[in-house]
């Protein structure tokens, strides 16, 4: 199980906040400026990420270097750039994508100037109706996101991400982090995705099929995003051997909570389904209830569980 470092992305705050459709025009312009700066920022440092879920917390600390459109994680074996992930044993690239805007349910409010880890910064709040859903603090000098806080439906903090130290002049040779001799597994877009175009306010943006026949459908609401993977038949996912459970609308799913995202899997109608994303618990429950329900265990399985647990 000593697998390579897996660059699991999360939109630790800053996800697509462009195209804000609510809030004053001035905030829209400001937010776009923030995002443009964040994408072009050059920095390096350590980031701590924590996800709190049902009373437990998963925490990770990561070395991150960002230059151009490339993010280097850890010792450099994992690199993420636009549409590509390169890891030590190969890479994945998606062919084409469509952009999503911020959902209508969000509005953005500027908080103003603050200070984080000794640096001048600017903060914004993102509201879902009257609910504070996210607070994001951007470094004033570079535009990099310094702190991100995401809240659940009860107003509780469920994900926290912050730079522990910050170097705005990283020693990066851009050529070194962009050149690669890896071959990428190319994910080919699918013209007729089967999953709904909208799930609980999330828009389906793209669907892909890999060589192993997993269907990958991507959803985003501009702030959070998730992927749904489908494979025909029963597929074993060893990482879920000790997983917990997640209940939604009297349905039970296997759940893995990681510092940067959550994983859910279930079997429905002869298909193995896996959902991975950074969405909050209440959104996750709403999304799952709009997807095919988990198969009910057969008589023999219920009997087995009744006897042996």
């Amino acid at each position: 199980m000593n697998r390579r470092l897996s660059a699991l992305g999360t939109i630790t705050a800053v996800a697509a906040l462009i195209a804000v459709t609510a809030g004053p025009a001035a905030a829209i312009d400001t937010l776009e400026d923030y995002l443009a700066e964040a994408e072009s920022a050059e920095y390096a440092g350590r980031r701590i990420v924590m996800t709190s879920w049902d009373g437990d917390a998963e925490v990770g600390i990561y070395d991150v270097t960002h230059a151009g459109d490339v993010t280097v994680i850890g010792d450099g074996q994992t690199r993420v750039s636009s549409g590509k992930v390169a890891a030590e044993d190969g890479g994945v690239a998606v062919l084409g994508w469509s952009q999503s805007g911020l959902a209508d349910r969000y509005s953005v409010v500027e908080v103003g100037a603050v200070e984080r880890i000794g640096r001048d910064a600017s903060a914004i709040d993102v509201f879902e109706g009257s609910l504070l859903r996210a607070s994001i603090t951007f470094d004033e000098a570079t535009g990099a996101p310094l702190v991100t806080q995401m809240y659940d439906a009860d107003g509780g903090l469920f994900r926290y991400s912050a730079m522990l130290d910050f170097d705005d002049r990283p020693n990066v040779v851009y050529r070194d982090i962009t050149s690669t001799d890896r071959e990428y597994d190319v994910m080919v877009p699918v013209a007729d995705p089967k999953l709904p175009a909208e799930l609980a306010g999330y828009q389906r943006t793209d669907a892909y099929r890999g060589a192993d026949d997993w269907m990958h459908t991507f959803y985003s609401d501009g702030l959070f995003s998730f992927s749904i993977f489908e494979a025909g038949g029963a597929v074993t996912l060893n990482e879920f051997a000790d997983a917990g459970t997640f209940e939604a609308d009297n349905r039970t799913y296997s759940l893995l909570v990681r510092p940067t995202e959550v994983w859910v899997t279930w079997r429905a109608g002869g298909t193995t389904m896996v959902l991975v994303g950074d969405l909050p618990p209440d959104h996750l429950a709403e999304v799952l209830t709009e997807l095919p329900a988990p198969d009910k265990p057969g008589f023999l399985r219920r009997l087995w569980r009744g006897i042996f647990g």
Partner: peptide, 13 residues
């Protein structure tokens, strides 16, 4: 990796 590859093109990722 596939999830990250796609999510990486989200604005502000």
């Amino acid at each position: 990796d596939r999830h990250v590859a796609r999510a990486s093109v989200e604005a502000g990722f």
